[in-house]
Amino acid sequence: MTSVKIKLNPAEVAKLREACASFNNEAGELINVLHKAQSIFGYLPAEVQEIVAEELNVAVAKVYGVVTFYSFFTMIPKGQHPISVCTGTACYVRGADKVLDEFKRRLNIQVGETAADGKFSLSCLRCVGACGLAPVVMVGEKVYGRVSPDGVAEILAEYE
C-alpha cells in the first residue's frame, strides 16, 4: 500500500459509512460493501480499505486480501473513460489481441494503467457474453462490437 496519504472527500466518506451501516456492519457483507465503496470512490485506495475495516471490525489486512483477490476491485483510479477489451476465448480467436495492442500503442499505456491525463484507462475483461459481436470492446458502459485494429482510432476519437 502507498505510504503517501490521500485526502478523501468527507461527503464520500460519510456515504461509505452509511453503506456499511446499511449492511449492519457485518463482516460477512465485506464484498457487497466493497462493491458499494468502489461505486462511490471509483476505486479502492488504502484509505478507503481502512475505513471499511474499521466499520466492519475486521483487520485491514483481511480487507486488502479480499480487494486484491478479486479482479473486479481496483486500487488504481480508472480513467474518465475506462476501456475494457474483452479477451475471452471467442474474442481472442477473432483477433482481440491485435485490438488490445492497438489501444496500448495509441494510448501509450499498458493493461491496468491509466493515461497520464486521466482520460482513458485500459483493462481486459473476460467475456461480456456478446460473443456474436466478437471482438468486443467496452468504453464505460457502451459496447462496441466487431472492432478491428483500424477501428480503434475511431472509437478513441468519439471521446476526444
Partner: peptide, 25 residues
C-alpha cells in the same frame, strides 16, 4: 442475491461459499 467480483475459481462450490461469506474465494 450475492455478487461475485471476478474470480473464475468461485465457480467451484466451496470457493463460491467462501466468497458469499465475504472471504477470499
Amino acid at each position: 442475491m450475492r455478487y461475485g467480483a471476478g474470480a473464475f475459481v468461485c465457480g467451484e462450490e466451496t470457493a463460491l461459499i467462501h466468497s458469499m461469506e465475504g472471504e477470499r474465494g
